[in-house]
Amino acid sequence: MRKFIVLLLFIFFICGCARLPATRIKYMPLDSIDPLNYTLEFTQRIPERMEVVNSIVFQYKWRSFTALGLTYLNIKEKTFVVSCMSPVGVKLFELIGDKDSVKANFVLKELLQRGDLPKAVGEDIRRIYFDNKPLQDSFIKKDRYRIIYTENKDTGVTKYIFAGIPSRLIEKRYYEAGRNIWSVYYYDYRLVQGKLYPAYCLLKNYKFGYKLFTRIKEIR
């Protein structure tokens, strides 16, 4: 029994140490940084519009589902168009949305049987790509390597965690009644024509227990 427990611990340790398929930001001491100006360069480099081809992995319990996405985002206007297909090119769903609503242009019949897919996808797109700059009047907490900007909204609290020099958004967390509902982690920022694109994003939805990974394959 003891051997079995040791083996289990070893497996958990190995899994826990599994290398993330993305580069983490280089943490730098932020002692001399003014938090009010720290995010300025980052926010100026957020593209107003972007069209990307990305791979998408949805992980729920022990199952995962991989797809290919073609996504157009107007970050300024908060609108999006997403077409998701299987990696062999069969269309799974196509959605058009804005900050409040989503319209399904097409959804494969089988996918509709598993709940309101357009609504869930629309919410995840907004969580990952929209509202990625903290407001001027955010509550600021500074530690040695990170600055956390906290915003209170009607329904909950959003925390923006910035690190590195120059600053990069590394995590966005959302809480309701003190409980972490979801978090988005951003890795591998790419600077293309003066604009920043997070090439690898991981969304963890703690409320529903799933993970969503997106990796940019092409920027258009």
């Binding site: 791979s55 991989t66 990696p87 990974f213 394959k217």
Partner: peptide, 20 residues
Amino acid sequence: PMRYSIVIRGSTISQWDEDT
């Protein structure tokens, strides 16, 4: 744009992708 494979042998389908 991504590495992926699907193999169908009779009634069994196996899939692999580079991300997972």
